[in-house]
Amino acid sequence: MKFDISYTLEAFPRLLEGAFITLQVAILGFTLSVLLATTITVARTSLNSKIFNSILAFYISFIRGTPILVQIFLVYYVLPVFGLNLGPFTAGIVAITLNSAAFVTEILRGGLASVPVGQFEAAKSLGISGYALWRKIILPQTFITSIPPLVNEFTMVLKATALLSLITVVELMRVSQQIYSANYHPVEVLSGAFVIYFLMCFVVSRSSVFLENRFKVKRA
């Protein structure tokens, strides 16, 4: 057999459409996970409750200790048992959000630790507290120091979206499977998808430096 690039080129427009869905899923899942993780982080610091912390520790340990694929299956197959009939797309987003939020929470914990305690005290002495304290003072600093690991986590999410093909979400991986199950040229088609995945992840991971510089300048 010979590698026939015409099959790759022929598949390319549809693969790009799939890549567009992949990006949407990744951005949606990651955004939700950052929102969830931020809420968790604020709640953990403000509540300082033992029960909350141990539930959180359990959740993080479970997510980090089990394959995301199994987590996706759990959400996809188990929620309907409880009468929650989400479609594959929603189930996929939920699974990715729950997974990524655990990692983002850990990232934010590290970022928060680098914010000096004096910042809290200074703000309080100025009468800034609650929402304003977090929104204006603590969270911006936390996020700026967390840029490199957050960008890395986004590439993780981007790569994880390919697993949603297994629960029939029609993203890049699924599109390529649909194409090669029709034309029987998996190597050519998958190679095209492979290159697209690589370019997306490579560009995103390289953007870390760019983002860091941009925000550092703003800060100075």
Binding site: K159, A162, M173, P186, V187, S191, F194, Y197, F198, F202
Partner: peptide, 17 residues
Amino acid sequence: EVFRNTPFIIQVFLFYY
């Protein structure tokens, strides 16, 4: 760089085919 910047599932499929 290639193996770090692509999903494992597509690497597996490529190896398989």
